[in-house]
Simulated scan of single mutants.
Amino acid sequence: MSQTTAVRGFDHYFVPEPSKYPIFGSAALLLFGAGSALWLNDVASGPWLFFAGVAILIYMLFGWFGQVVRESESGQYGRRVGLSFRWSMGWFIFSEVMFFAAFFGALFYARVLSVPWLASGDNAALLWQGFSSAWPTSGPYTPSGAEPFTPMGAWGIPAINTLILLTSGVTLTWAHHGLLGNRRGQLKLGLFATIVLGAVFIGLQAYEYGHAYADLNLRLDSGIYGSTFYLLTGFHGLHVTIGAIMLAVMLFRVLAGHFSPQHHFGFEAAAWYWHFVDVVWLILFIVVYWL
């Protein structure tokens, strides 16, 4: 039985020993950023630096989070540490809210303000022939350029993915209730089902992208619509991937006997993140696909 099942009544604040992982994280981000910039500029060393940064980052994540898990399971964390974890996760999710708010703001500015303004008065004379303020705007196409694109509809794969994410929120809540009731079988099944639904979502989004490029000619360079479409859906897909990885780690911890009805903030943090991703998708589905 994990030591987290014991009632921890102490109120001290645990101070960990000096760690080597922050310097590894800094080096990883430096290599990741520099490698990305060099790779985009066709410098031969770019991919090597990029993947070196990824490898160091993975090492840091496994090492640092593993250390935190061991400290938690050994009973070294009290109420104050748990409270600091909750504040930290709350602020992290708030930063993610602001992250997506900037992208939704860019879409709002382009669709509601910028495009209608460009089509008004004398501005239209400065643009290409046939420019219209109707959304989505296709961008300037020359006679030898690309064919106009077809916007992505809402009631195919996007609607199916909406149902998948809503269902995943239900299965995750069901798993949480299993943990609170100490029903480990329900916890494992609910977590596994949530991870599978997340993987199906990612697979369908990849298929959607292939369909958009091959059949709809909807590309990253398809005007402001294409740019904002891939910006919002792509970053959301990345967040679904990260959330599924977090839940997979929680499942492995559950299988190892971690968590109890009283002490399971690691699970709660991953659940908070997943529900946040669900809410972002609902907003995205309405303003990007539907309206």
Rank of each mutant, 00 (worst) to 15 (best):
7 V>I: 11
8 R>L: 12
15 V>N: 07
16 P>L: 02
20 K>Q: 12
20 K>Y: 14
25 G>I: 02
26 S>T: 15
27 A>L: 11
28 A>L: 03
29 L>E: 06
30 L>A: 09
30 L>H: 03
32 F>T: 14
34 A>F: 12
36 S>W: 13
36 S>T: 14
39 W>G: 04
39 W>H: 06
43 V>S: 04
50 F>I: 05
51 F>C: 10
54 V>K: 02
60 M>A: 15
62 F>T: 14
62 F>I: 15
63 G>F: 02
64 W>K: 13
66 G>C: 05
66 G>V: 03
69 V>L: 12
69 V>I: 13
75 G>E: 03
77 Y>K: 11
88 S>Y: 01
89 M>E: 02
94 F>H: 07
95 S>N: 08
98 M>S: 09
101 A>Q: 01
105 G>L: 01
109 Y>S: 06
111 R>T: 03
119 A>L: 01
120 S>D: 15
122 D>R: 15
125 A>Y: 13
128 W>S: 01
131 F>L: 00
132 S>E: 11
135 W>V: 01
136 P>S: 05
141 Y>H: 15
141 Y>M: 15
142 T>L: 13
145 G>N: 05
148 P>Y: 06
150 T>E: 11
154 A>W: 09
157 I>F: 03
161 N>W: 00
164 I>A: 04
169 G>L: 00
171 T>R: 00
173 T>Y: 14
174 W>S: 13
177 H>P: 03
178 G>D: 01
182 N>Y: 09
187 L>S: 10
188 K>E: 15
191 L>D: 05
195 I>C: 03
199 A>V: 06
200 V>Y: 02
203 G>R: 01
203 G>L: 04
205 Q>I: 00
213 Y>H: 13
213 Y>K: 10
215 D>V: 14
215 D>L: 10
217 N>P: 02
219 R>A: 07
220 L>D: 10
222 S>G: 12
233 T>F: 03
233 T>R: 00
236 H>F: 05
242 I>T: 08
244 A>T: 14
245 I>K: 04
247 L>K: 08
247 L>S: 09
255 L>G: 04
255 L>Q: 07
256 A>T: 04
258 H>C: 10
258 H>V: 03
262 Q>F: 11
263 H>F: 10
264 H>P: 06
266 G>Y: 15
267 F>S: 06
272 W>H: 09
272 W>P: 00
273 Y>Q: 05
274 W>M: 01
283 I>A: 15
283 I>D: 08
284 L>V: 01
285 F>R: 04
286 I>W: 08
290 W>P: 04
290 W>A: 09
